[in-house]
Design a protein around this nucleic acid. Structure first.
Lengths: 354, 354
DNA sequence: CTGAAAGCGCTTACAG
DNA sequence: CTGAAAGCGCTTACAG
């Protein structure tokens, strides 16, 4: 790489001062059209690009957003949760649309993340993404607020939380899914996923589940709940636990699609058919949900919209405008995994008709 | 945000010069242990972080890698190809492991990407990722080389290509999949995907396909090939085209999993069963491949390994070491979609045994 | 509309 | 081992 062209080189070539080059290239109205054109063409021939480091240093900003992706360290580390992958895609798009670069960082190990990015001027603001134990994050969030760091986080939207949170209406989503299972005739509906306030999104889904049960005059039975983080394996194990417990159930509501898919595998291995013996629903609507067999009934979180809102609210903060937490609607997607009674298999019908 | 602490503040607090602060914090051996400790604790109490912009400006480097993701503008723009999403995950991890930040950028629209990142000192090197028309990229790659830009690209590894390419052995993969279909008794195997050198990865897969056919004494029939880019929709349409043409085939090899999955839908809609009537294979092994029904036989590209190698070779270039193109092995994953003859359905057996 | 000059916060020869 | 000083390449008051 031979010496990169600087604004002085352009100035020299165009026969103006370096200040004028800078102004022209930044689109200042203080430069005459003709001068601007001359400078522009000089810049083009020298293949000049403004040095971001210098520009940012001087302007004290960065033009980039940092996406911090928290993954539960216990998760299988080869795969990122597909839901977050979708979010990542939409956040990337939304950032680009608003002229920001996006820096991505996984935060499984580092503990000092709360200051790493904005403190070191790598990013103007932070997007926090990830399921995970909220309690252990909370004090860091408060520190972030105290420091004046601009950030938005994806998660449960509840009163009294530090900073700006964007999330979907987990309570309504949990309620919707459970109501649907009840309408399908299910009476013993299991909930797979952590149901404590440690994981507020799951907790809200659980609360929605419990509300739907009570509204239908059904009992919330603790035997029907088993903890699980968002992995297929955890879903598998939670379903196994239920089965070993001897719990009787005619439906399973997984707190996430990954959990539901894991449960599906456990049920199949025991010879239980879905939806024939057990109706099944998940949460997230990851791409896989519509492809598995049977296709998975789930609560859709609109990741496209989510990315837009996250970026929008963060950019507002950076611009000094007020930003607000927002709750996005949850939408029930009914697919085959919950549709009962299952149409009678053709061969059984034939046998009976003999 | 109250005035951020600078190295001068630390110097003042620790009672040393600013230069010493800088040295201590960068781990220079020129600083005594005791001084270093004093400086470190001052930095901690003031919550000091080195300003990356200033540091990078001075050191003339950035510590970040840019991942440019090219997507075919005709693709459904709401979804990123899951294969690239996997790559993105593994590249992110590999970069973090080597201490680089990763800047992500989608390049559907911008045309000036070849200089945007390294020229403006946003990144030390580029990772180019995306299927796409190679011919139209080629001159940009050459410009990149001419400029001395460090980059690696994911794609076909062929002689005479500009720069460093990492890719999987697409020829071997295509051949493997086709051989497997032939072993399953298929004789009329369709190929869905562009088969021209414009898309070198697909072309290599096609060449592997053709080689396997010839080796088995089978004819390569143009009627059995239909173009498709990497989307489910394109796969669906290509299969439709084949069907409308009245082409007779007993197997379909999709140049990517997405194409194969689209073809599966088209076949099902026509009442053709997979693998009963038509055996099916794809390429990539995206997560969905193992979840659809029937599960999809495919050629696995190891994205974890790919990300590591891409980052490794790029970092070597940045460090002034020589980097080399590399071809990663392709691995056949046999699943249900290609296993013929299909076990006889239970009810048919019953009927016959009456 | 344009130019000369200061300064963003570091890193690193240079001198001791 | 430490300090004083130059300079990375910009942006932006300040002066005209």
């Amino acid at each position: 790489m031979k010496g990169k062209a600087t604004s002085f080189d352009i100035a020299h070539l165009a026969g103006v001062s370096q200040s004028t080059v800078s102004r022209a290239l930044r689109g200042s109205p203080l430069v005459s059209e003709e001068t601007r054109r001359r400078i522009q063409s000089a810049a083009d021939t020298l293949n000049y690009k403004v040095d971001k480091n210098a520009s940012n240093l001087r302007r004290q900003h960065t033009g980039t957003l940092a996406l911090l992706l928290f993954e539960d360290p216990t998760a299988d580390d080869s795969h990122i949760n597909p839901f977050f992958l979708s979010m990542l895609g939409s956040i990337t798009r939304a950032s680009a649309q608003r002229g920001y670069d996006l820096l991505i960082s996984f935060q499984q190990f580092s503990r000092d993340w709360h200051a790493d990015f904005t403190g070191s001027q790598k990013a103007d603001g932070l997007i926090l993404l990830g399921y995970g134990d909220y309690q252990s994050h909370r004090d860091k969030l408060e520190k972030l607020v105290a420091q004046g760091t601009r950030f938005v986080r994806w998660g449960a939207v509840l009163p009294g939380q530090p900073g700006v949170s964007i999330g979907c209406d987990n309570f309504a989503g949990g309620r919707l899914a459970t109501q649907h299972l009840i309408e399908q005739g299910c009476r013993r509906i299991a909930f797979l996923g952590d149901a404590t306030p440690h994981y507020p999104e799951f907790h809200e889904r659980y609360r929605g589940y419990a509300a739907a049960l009570r509204e239908a005059g059904l009992r919330v039975d603790e035997v029907l709940q088993a903890d699980a983080e968002t992995t297929e394996r955890a879903g598998y194990e939670a379903a196994e636990l239920l089965l070993e417990r001897g719990a009787e159930f005619d439906a399973v509501f997984g707190a996430s699609d990954l959990i539901a898919i894991g449960a599906l595998r456990a049920l199949s291995e025991r010879g239980l058919s879905v939806p024939g013996d057990v109706a099944l629903a998940g949460f997230d609507d990851i791409p896989m949900a519509s492809f598995i067999n049977p296709s998975l009934t789930t609560v859709r979180q609109d990741t496209g919209k989510a990315g837009e809102v996250l970026v929008e609210q963060l950019v507002r903060q950076i611009g000094g405008e007020g930003a607000e937490s927002a709750m996005l609607p949850a939408q029930l997607k009914v697919r085959r995994s919950s549709l009962r009674p299952e149409p009678e298999p053709a061969f059984r019908k034939m046998l009976r008709n003999q």
